[in-house]
Nucleic acid binder design. Structure first.
Length: 762
DNA sequence: AGCACGCCGACT
DNA sequence: GTCGGCGTGCTC
């Protein structure tokens, strides 16, 4: 079978010249197999009509000719080749992706080192591929001969089932007493219930080329923009018309400066030119909330995120692919929304870690959004009060980037006053300094609200023997066990181990009582309740938020005023504007800056600025209290003053010196296996193989391997990682591709994943 | 993914 | 001598 000389994406095939040998139509297919290349298949004449790039197909693969699913990437005429296998079927139930989304998927596959089919599978959910299966509970007849005595209603139901099985619900609703009749018949063995699977594909989709439904006119804008907002909007609009232009606009807007309204007007401007827009937000709860808000302003807006059911997602995708949607609001995967005339992409809270995918392909939705905007020839807006260092670096380096500043609050309120307090000096109540308590009492007394951030889950971060000082450690990964008093348990936040809380020292010869230390959020709740018994407290952390809806529900309860104080981990920093919040408190700012990660300072800074900003929505002057043992620490002072640019200067210089991102590209390969030695050997094999290839390619890379942590979060896997640090010119991607072409990154280990531009190193 | 090929240990 | 273990490689 001949190897195809598949063209690079975007490159067009020349039409066959006159007099050349016979040609046939050939489709390049991303087959759902562990391969990095596309395969070429002949297109049978009867399928030509229905086959287009983006379609889901079935193809034979391997000697046995097993049938596998795949995605048609492109179709082109090629010289006749007898050995080429044919495409077996075009899956009519699947929604085809747009040409640009296909191209984007190929770029993601290349950049994030992932098989193309796997990328497309991650963007095209099951619903999009196979249609939605709905299960209906039905009954069918078992025996024909009826018993001697049969009630009239039973006989009627049996007669109905004579021809074909029927759904139980329909029968029950059809006549009185049917439910009881069904039960009698089932008990008598006359009928049986079963699940009937009904497939419903998206075949009814009208593609964008067909005339779309006319949009109803959108409601008018109600208020006028500030001068700063207008200036920002003008810059965005300049990239929309008269010539659509690719440009990355970093909308650097202080908290409360009205970024959302700029988004809305920019989307309106894009829609006015007949194009469509995507708005990416970091959380599902936010997508829903902003979606509702935008629905009032746009008649054709749709929400798209992983929390939707298969059915709902299919409906949304069907409308989007059919060209009947102007605006898509969604979380990271919405960056792949199959809009045909995309004219604007907006990434809200561009610095947020939730934009990075947690599974292969480990893409960052902000970076994919930038690539998509480039492919669509459209502007992309990156909104943030604290832009990522990556964006600041690109602003300095790339001519495509442009900074849009909005410094002033639209409501006219002043920025909150920030007080830095050392809780060890002066009186305190557990975790709460007297200063913070005084402000809490004042604010609650005035009928206002407060938000307190304490980034530690549980009750106490460690337990130590009161006599010999021996700490209680996790036996699996030897990190400190956290006391969760409410459940009377200790838990390991690293590997998930959970057991009954012991009362005494782990050293049985000592046996003294254990003492809790490193006070966490549950202790804060207790201290706060003791200090101000009348305060209504709402706690927001991973332990109180069991399900996704809990988070949105808690936020809206706080918004309604059902609580006076919202306390929580970093979850509280995000979320919507609460106009009644007049006080923000950070219980332990030091802990945030001292995490063992090269991004710790950036994260802590962003989190502090966000939390302080929460106190600024109130009309009257808001206050923020930052508890720290080192009030004069330079980074902390910069954060409290929201001095973004001085901080960025400082931090960028640090990264440059160390040769870390954004000055270098970082790739992380994680090798895991239940057996520690297998994981280690795998990592070492990969790292030495990569060093060898790097030398051959004469690429100047830093490659090292190390154990990540003794036990992974899941299923007792031992994890090792290989880190590659190098230039941002694609040489690391070439290195990985080269490695894959040889024996690959496959080792004896159970799992091996490649994370390009990782955010977390734990 | 899944299947063939290939090179080593325990059996009829 | 063979059967079968799964490590390695390939599929248009």
């Amino acid at each position: 079978v001949p190897r195809s000389t598949a063209p690079k994406s975007g490159q067009l095939w020349l039409a066959p010249t006159e007099g050349t040998p016979r040609h046939e139509l050939v489709a390049d297919v991303a087959v759902c197999a562990r391969t990095w290349s596309l395969y070429s298949y002949a297109v049978p004449p009867e399928l030509v009509e229905r086959l287009a790039p983006g379609a889901s197909v079935s193809v034979p693969l391997g000697r046995a000719g097993r049938t596998l699913d795949g995605w048609c990437i492109r179709v082109s005429p090629q010289p006749w080749d007898q050995t080429r296998k044919p495409i077996l079927a075009v899956n009519a139930a699947a929604l085809p992706l747009t040409a640009t989304v296909i191209e984007l998927a190929l770029w993601v596959a290349d950049y994030y080192h992932c098989p193309p089919a796997r990328v497309i599978e991650s963007i095209a959910p099951a619903a999009l591929r196979r249609g939605v299966k709905t299960r209906v509970r039905c009954v069918r007849q078992l025996r024909r001969e009826p018993p001697a005595e049969l009630r009239e209603i039973d006989a009627r139901i049996l007669a109905l089932l004579e021809k074909e099985p029927r759904p139980i619900r329909a029968l029950r609703d059809s006549q009185r007493g049917a439910a009881a009749a069904l039960k009698r018949l089932a008990d008598a063995g006359m009928i049986e219930a079963f699940w009937c699977v009904e497939e419903r594909g998206p075949e009814a989709v009208r593609l964008a080329s067909a005339p779309a439904e006319a949009a109803e006119p959108c409601p008018e804008d109600e208020f006028t923009l500030s001068a700063e907002q207008q200036a920002a909007l003008r810059q965005i609009a300049d990239c929309l018309a008269p010539t659509p232009t690719f440009r990355v606009l970093s909308l650097f807007g202080a908290p409360g400066s009205g970024k959302t309204e700029v988004y809305v007007r920019a989307i309106r401007a894009a829609v006015a030119t007949g194009r469509q827009a995507i708005l990416l937000v970091p959380e599902i709860a936010l997508a829903t909330q902003i979606g509702q808000r935008l629905s009032r302003r746009f008649t054709r807006a749709r929400v798209l995120h992983s929390g939707l059911s298969g059915r709902a997602r299919l409906d949304a995708l069907r409308a989007i692919r059919g060209g009947n949607v102007d605006v898509v609001i969604g979380t990271r995967s919405a960056v792949f929304a199959p809009l045909e005339r995309l004219g604007l992409v907006i990434v809200d809270e561009e610095q947020e870690g939730s934009l990075k995918s947690l599974a292969a392909p480990f893409y960052h939705a902000r970076d994919v959004a930038i690539k998509r905007a480039q492919l669509e020839n459209a502007p992309v807006v990156l909104g943030s009060a604290t832009p990522s260092l990556e964006t600041w670096h690109n602003l300095a380096e790339s001519k495509h980037y442009q900074l849009l500043r909005m410094d002033r609050r639209i409501a006219g309120g002043a920025a909150p006053r920030v007080e830095r307090v050392d809780p060890r000096r002066g009186p305190r109540r557990g975790l709460l300094s007297q200063t913070l308590l005084d402000h809490l009492l004042r604010v609650i007394g005035d009928g206002g609200q407060a938000i307190l951030l304490h980034n530690r889950r549980g009750y106490a971060v460690h337990l130590r023997c009161s006599r010999c000082g021996l700490p209680l450690l996790c036996e699996r990964c030897s990190s400190s066990l956290v006391l969760h008093r409410a459940e009377d348990a200790v838990r390991c936040h690293r590997c998930g181990l959970r057991r009954h809380a012991p009362a005494a020292c782990p050293d049985t010869t000592c046996g003294a009582a254990l003492e809790p230390g490193g006070l966490a959020i549950q202790r804060l709740e207790q201290d706060l309740h003791a200090a101000i018994p009348t305060a209504r407290i709402l706690r927001l952390d991973r332990d109180t938020m069991r399900r996704r809806e809990d988070y949105a529900a808690a936020l809206s309860r706080f918004e309604r005023g059902d609580a006076d104080v919202l306390i929580g981990t970093q979850m509280v920093a995000k979320g919507l504007d609460f106009p009644r919040v007049a006080l923000a408190g950070v219980l332990d700012a030091d802990a945030m800056f001292s995490m063992p990660d090269f991004r710790a300072a950036e994260r802590a800074f962003q989190l502090l600025v966000q939390v302080v900003g929460r106190a600024g929505r109130a009309a009257a002057g808001g206050v923020a209290v930052i508890q720290t043992t080192d009030p004069e620490a330079p980074l902390l002072r910069l954060a409290c003053d929201a001095a973004v640019e001085p901080f960025v200067q400082r931090e960028l210089e640090q990264r440059r010196r160390l040769g870390y991102p954004p000055f270098a590209r970082l790739v992380r390969i994680i090798v895991s296996d239940p057996q520690p030695a297998v994981a280690r050997d795998g990592a070492e094999r990969i790292s030495s193989a990569l060093r060898e290839i790097a030398e051959r390619l004469s690429a100047a890379l830093r490659i090292g391997s190390a154990e990540v942590c003794a036990v992974a979060r899941q299923r007792g896997m031992h994890r090792w990682q290989v880190l590659i640090l190098g230039p941002k010119d694609g040489s690391i991607q070439r290195l990985l591709a080269e490695a894959e072409a040889q024996r690959g990154l496959r080792t004896a280990a159970k799992r091996c994943v490649v994370d390009v531009d990782p955010l977390d190193m734990m």
